[in-house]
């Protein structure tokens, strides 16, 4: 019977593992999707930078064209702005919708995972092997270990995001410098000096906006993923302490007297076997 239980625990653990992965991926994706609004804003800013750059680059013609458009074709501009706002609202609504769906899928997957793992735990506890049951139910132990590793890895998401951001900010000019040295044999400063001040200004602005948004997205993701991992760890700690609270142990000085008192008052008390 116990062997059957052990097999059942291991099979349930194997079934639970994909739910753990799916649930985690959905959760991380939904957290990442929340940042898409930021990516959208960044893209708009980058397009804006290039639009201004092109307007200046093409001399006064484009500026004059825009003024004429604004004066005489104001309605069209308003219509375009409305379409843009409509598109952005639709995009954000869709993103939110996908995010909600992902959250729901995560909830469902994690519900199934927890259900299966609780069943495993109950079956394991009903076995008479004590701590050795953990070894017998090896696959369950492995699944729990994988979960532990995933959560502890994501606890490090924020420090990792910080390191990545620093690498990105410092690495980009260094990488560009190495690349330019290899291809045209001059360094980044010498290369930029070949261009007009305006082109350099817009390029730096473009790079700064791109880098800043990449860094902000990385840091936000790091914070959110770390928060999620800490919450999950706290939750699992709370779950395990709940299990302990369900079986409280009160050590009393005089057990016989206490039992007599409880019989008199109708109270239930729990007594440690050691104190008896």
């Amino acid at each position: 019977m116990n062997i059957l239980k052990a097999i059942a625990v291991n099979i349930l653990a194997v079934i639970a593992l994909p739910f753990l992965f799916i649930g985690t991926v959905f959760k991380l994706c939904s957290k990442a999707l929340e940042k898409i609004a930021f990516i959208f804003i960044t893209l708009v800013v980058l397009v804006g930078i290039y639009f201004i750059h092109d307007m200046i680059y093409s001399g006064g013609e484009a500026i004059a064209m825009v003024i004429v458009t604004l004066f005489f074709l104001g309605l069209i501009v308003l219509f375009l702005i409305n379409i843009f706002l409509f598109a952005s609202t639709v995009c954000l609504a869709l993103v939110n919708f996908i995010s909600v769906v992902l959250e729901a899928l995560n909830g469902a997957a994690m519900f199934l995972f927890n259900l299966l793992m609780k069943t495993c735990e109950k079956l394991r506890d009903s076995m008479p092997y004590g701590k050795a049951a953990r070894i017998i139910c090896l696959l369950e132990t492995i699944v729990l270990a994988i979960r532990w590793v995933i959560l502890h890895l994501f606890v490090l998401a924020f420090p990792l995001a910080c390191i990545l951001s620093i690498l990105l900010v410092l690495g980009s000019p260094i990488y560009a410098n190495i690349l330019l040295k290899n291809i045209i044999g001059i360094n980044l400063i010498q290369y930029l000096k070949l261009f007009s001040g305006r082109a350099v200004f817009f390029t730096i602005l473009y790079l700064l906006v791109s880098l800043a948004s990449a860094v902000i997205i990385l840091l936000c993701l790091g914070i959110e993923w770390t928060e999620w991992a800490i919450e999950e760890l706290d939750q699992s700690d709370a779950d395990s302490s709940e299990t302990t609270v369900a079986e409280p142990v009160i050590i009393v000085a005089n057990p016989q007297q206490s039992i007599q008192n409880s019989v008199d008052t109708g109270q239930t008390i729990y007594i440690s076997s050691d104190s008896l």
Binding site: I183, I184, G185, F195, S196
Partner: peptide, 21 residues
Amino acid sequence: EEFAHSEKGILGTPSYCDGSP
């Protein structure tokens, strides 16, 4: 690199550049 490299290129480092850096 075959035409714009400062040492190995046919033309070497350009006098100036336009467009996107």
